[in-house]
């Protein structure tokens, strides 16, 4: 037990890194859900595609890292657009559930496609900055600073987008009442396209900062954990995603430490944390920890 507590700072530092990734993923889930009512099960694939494309651009084609990252994000955003136009749009009027199932199909399709292009089990995605930094009780890769900085920047940008721009107000209006949104002149179809494209960028960023290694299947775990974070946060605004991401990220690493140091079992079981959290929240507080019931007076 003593070893567990002395290692706790390290677990928390590790947890901050995962939290950033889950926050980004959760914002993607929440944005699409709140503006279209669809849970996009292909959200994890955005992360995988972007990380793998970044690998190819920088390692195979030798592009500078910045260009590779920009290229990977641009392509992932385009995949998001395409997903909305080719899969979601044709199903308009067929019900939300149909669209959700279609995203599961899209996820399988993208995963299989990625496997053809990137068949290996692991590709080394370049880190933005090499090296390790040491604190008194913990150490971390310099990459963590990038993760923190980029996540903080993205959270702030999303907040401004949703609250300070016309696009954001349109997206929020669609989330609250799609029909009323149409009646005030918002192009709901355009909003849905924008939501998917932005969610793809968020997922893409998560994939880029998430791991030193990427493969075609990484989207599954990132998807589950990001989705859990989003559900904890109530699948709504930016705050919820941040809260959910931190909850899942920190808890997961602390549990991993507990499992390996105290119980002596594989820390790989930590992946169950997100699933258990997801089931508990759905059972006991389906509106999320911060979700409020609908204020409505008839």
């Amino acid at each position: 037990m003593g070893a567990f507590f002395s290692n706790l700072p390290q677990y928390l530092v590790n947890g901050i890194g995962s939290s950033c990734v889950y926050i980004l993923m959760a914002m993607g889930f929440s944005l699409v859900y709140s503006s279209t009512g669809i849970i996009n099960f292909a959200q994890g694939e955005f992360a995988a595609i972007s990380a793998l494309v970044a690998y190819t651009l920088s390692m195979d084609l030798g592009l500078p890292l910045l260009l590779a990252v920009a290229g990977a994000l641009a392509l992932t955003g385009f995949v998001g657009l395409l997903l909305e136009r080719a899969v979601i749009r044709p199903l308009q009027g067929k019900g939300t559930l149909t669209a959700i199932i279609a995203t599961i199909g899209a996820s399988i399709f993208l995963k299989a496609g990625a496997r053809i292009i990137w068949p290996e089990e692991a590709y080394k995605v370049p880190e933005f900055t090499q090296g390790q930094l040491n604190l008194p009780k913990a150490s971390f890769n310099a990459q963590l600073l990038w993760m923190l900085g980029l996540t903080a920047f993205t959270v702030a940008a999303m907040y401004l987008l949703m609250n300070g721009t016309k696009l954001g107000k349109g997206l929020r209006a669609c989330a609250i009442n799609p029909e009323a949104a149409r009646l005030v002149g918002i192009d709901v179809s355009l909003m849905s396209m924008a939501a998917f494209a932005i969610a793809a960028l968020l997922g893409g960023l998560a994939g880029l900062v998430s791991a030193p290694f990427a493969n075609y299947g990484m989207g599954l775990y990132l998807g589950i954990k990001g989705f859990t974070a989003a559900v904890i946060g109530g699948l709504g605004d930016v705050y919820g995603a941040v809260l959910g991401g931190i909850t899942v990220g920190l808890l997961e690493e602390v549990v991993a430490g507990f499992l390996s140091v105290v119980l002596g079992v594989s820390s790989g079981y930590k992946d169950a944390v997100a699933v258990i959290l997801l089931i508990s929240v759905l059972l006991f507080r389906p509106q999320g920890l911060v979700g409020k019931g609908l204020v409505e007076k008839v």
Binding site: N177, E179, A180, L294
Partner: peptide, 10 residues
């Protein structure tokens, strides 16, 4: 519209 359809949460 019928039933007002205001944006409740705004």
């Amino acid at each position: 519209p019928e039933g007002r359809q205001v944006f409740y949460q705004l």
